[in-house]
Design a protein around this nucleic acid. Structure first.
Lengths: 222, 222
DNA sequence: GTCTACACGTGACAC
DNA sequence: TGTGTCACGTGTAGA
């Protein structure tokens, strides 16, 4: 098996099939197993015994010890941080590792929850279906310039993803962006300047601005 | 202490201060402790012994057993899923619990890495998912700069509304835009430069680029 | 030599 | 009833 123990644990029962079901209850079988166990035998000697009903008890206890040691081996394989090859230290390390893992799970789950909450926020307008919420801090300026182009400036203070909103609105109106510049000032204020192509039907400041505002109000998410 | 064991574990050493440092090496102290230990004494009888140098060995072994049982108690407290009050079962449950925790940590970390890329469009198309159409004329460069920011450059030639796509992708990944600049050159080629905030989980060039590409591929419309 | 850790056989419970 | 688990004292091996 060789689970990494120094040279002990899982005593010399190498020839005994470790099926954990091979119960040897007759004296002959136990004697054979005991003879093969002679190598690297630690504990007390068998001593003078009168073979009675206790011999099955001895074997049962032996198998119990084997099972326990096997479990120790498994646990040792499951714990990556093993300070010493000691049984007691292994138990302590296992408990510490479990605590560490649980802490990491807790932190990761909290992060996931927070991220999900932050992402879901805004999509569900908190105070009723008024789509104009948050527009108080927005200002949209539009000026048609030249023959088929317009300059657009959107200033926001409470829109985490205002760039996506403006670009999405321009796409919704099919206004190709010729140039754009986004700057965040002071953490939450965002100034966006853009130059877009404008079809003939929208070459009016008020008309274009109304169309853009209408589309912007459809997308209040962040 | 009462860590939840049935009525055993932490044998009748109730009067012995469990400081794990009270070494009783003199015969009188051991005799007193042994007398108080008389209640609920399991194991073998003392038998006819000639009080010699073994008495300290007995006490040392006793303290080792106590320490081991204490560790068992601690481990039991750390494992929430205890099937049986058995020592071997506790070891197996601890190993299983560690495996479960590790699996959860792995999954959560993977989820955190992927951020909310899967939130935009819920599982579209079961066929492997190679929507590389139209991507030949696109190039995305990502470089994490500074502590929590990244520079992104998207160059496109066949995407009429590439600005909306990039900003939408940045919103989908919840990457706030600090600065951005869009320039159209020659009619259909568009160069976009942006500086975005990046959470700790995505502060890796390859990881961030993969996430952005994945989201960009969801939005091939124009 | 001491000290630490372990396996063993064994008596005693408990179900 | 036995069957399973535990604590105990002990012998032993390594540092």
């Amino acid at each position: 098996m060789s689970c990494g123990v120094p040279e002990q644990w899982l005593m010399g029962d190498d020839t005994l099939d470790d099926d954990s079901k091979s119960l040897i209850h007759d004296a002959a079988g136990w004697a054979a197993a005991n003879a093969e166990r002679a190598v690297k035998r630690r504990g007390r000697k068998p001593g003078p015994r009168s073979d009675g009903p206790t011999i099955s008890h001895v074997e049962a206890e032996r198998q119990r010890r084997e099972k326990l040691n096997r479990r120790f081996c498994d646990l040792r394989a499951a714990v990556p941080t093993v300070s010493r090859m000691d049984k007691a230290s292994l138990l302590a390390d296992a408990a510490a590792y479990i605590a560490e893992l649980r802490g990491r799970v807790e932190q990761l789950e909290a992060e996931a929850k927070q991220a999900a909450a932050a992402r879901k926020a805004g999509h569900q307008g908190g105070g009723g279906g008024c789509p104009a919420m948050g527009m108080e801090a927005e200002k949209l300026e539009v000026r048609v310039v030249g023959r088929e182009q317009a300059a657009v400036r959107l200033t926001t203070t409470a829109s985490r993803h205002a760039p996506a909103r403006l670009m999405g609105a321009l796409r919704a109106l099919d206004l190709p962006v010729q140039h754009a510049c986004v700057s965040r000032v002071g953490g939450d204020a965002i100034v966006q300047d853009a130059v877009v192509d404008v079809p003939a039907a929208l070459q009016d400041d008020g008309c274009l601005r109304a169309a853009l505002l209408h589309v912007l109000q459809q997308d209040e998410s962040g």
